[in-house]
Amino acid sequence: MAGSGENKTAMMRLSKFKYLAPRSVNDAAKMLADAGPTASVVAGGTDLYPNMKRRHQTPKTLIGLRRVEGMRGVSGTPEGGLRIGPMTTLTALERNATVKAAHPGLWKAVHSISTPILRNMGTLGGNICLDTRCNYYDQNYEWRRAINFCMKCDGDTCWVAPGSKVCLAVSSSDTAPLLCAIGARLHLVSATGEREIAAHELYRRDGIHFLSKRPDELLTEIVLPATNGWRSTYRKLRRREAFDFPVLGVGAWASFDGPVVKEARIFLGAVSPAPVEAAEAAKSLVGTRLEPDAVARASDLAYGPAKPVDNTDFLTRWRKEMTKVYVKGALEDLRGS
């Protein structure tokens, strides 16, 4: 009969929690501070809810941000720097003509995420704060118990690198390397104050403590740099063209003086617990016209900083090898557009 018990069907259920639905950023920040470390905010839930079903996270209090005013939408102008609310869904960003025209790199990264249905639900803020991923971690509770868990959750060994002091779970956000490369800024608010940081400062090379953001801080705005003669792009490697997280992402940015590169930045995603800057590769592009030789040299230099480990889809060596190919493709995008 309808309404009968939960345990009749085998289903992965969410852990239990108290749900709060603040209407303002201030209320949300205060609730988060009051509820302490066992609370979590939830945006679209497409990362947090699967994690709760697998018992990675079991927040006692959930603070839903969907009814908070002023956290959604795109404002400003490209020339003055677009400001994006973290609750803007990925679909809304994808359909925003200004974003598509002025920030093709961000658009490509967003368009490459998961599936159209998940993009209707997932938000930019959730994508930026996405949990790190690992084959030994993204499994249900019973699976993880069978291997006696791992350091990131409930256990104390790292099955990828048993000698490692830090967890090597992979930064798997598609927008993270792109936002780092273009130099986006993130606005954080807590009950005790607010601050703005560069996107790359948010991430730490530690699969467990992968964000420098304090747990009581909310991401309230993403500020894109003013468009003035720079270009950006994103390239992503994965097995299927839908659903799959990146096993390599390349966010690339360059500013130009005519056809000549003035400055460049390249960030690699999914090869470490944080987006990794390929600084030497980017530096080697300065003064070039992204001619084939320059692109080949930079692609070789980007190979070094890519340090994937054996915890995602595909062979590790091949993923590392592909860095050259995908950086080359990204730099060709920058030259071509």
């Binding site: 969410l14 749900y19 679209g44 839930g45 497409t46 809810y49 699967p50 839903g64 969907r66 679909t91 159209p116 249905i117 998940l118 209707n120 639900m121």
Partner: peptide, 19 residues
């Protein structure tokens, strides 16, 4: 588990009833 929520396809397994 796809359903339409306000006309948009969404996954009913990843949205709370109370949302």
């Amino acid at each position: 588990c796809t359903v339409l929520i306000d006309g948009e396809p969404q996954l009913s397994c990843l949205v709370l009833g109370l949302e």
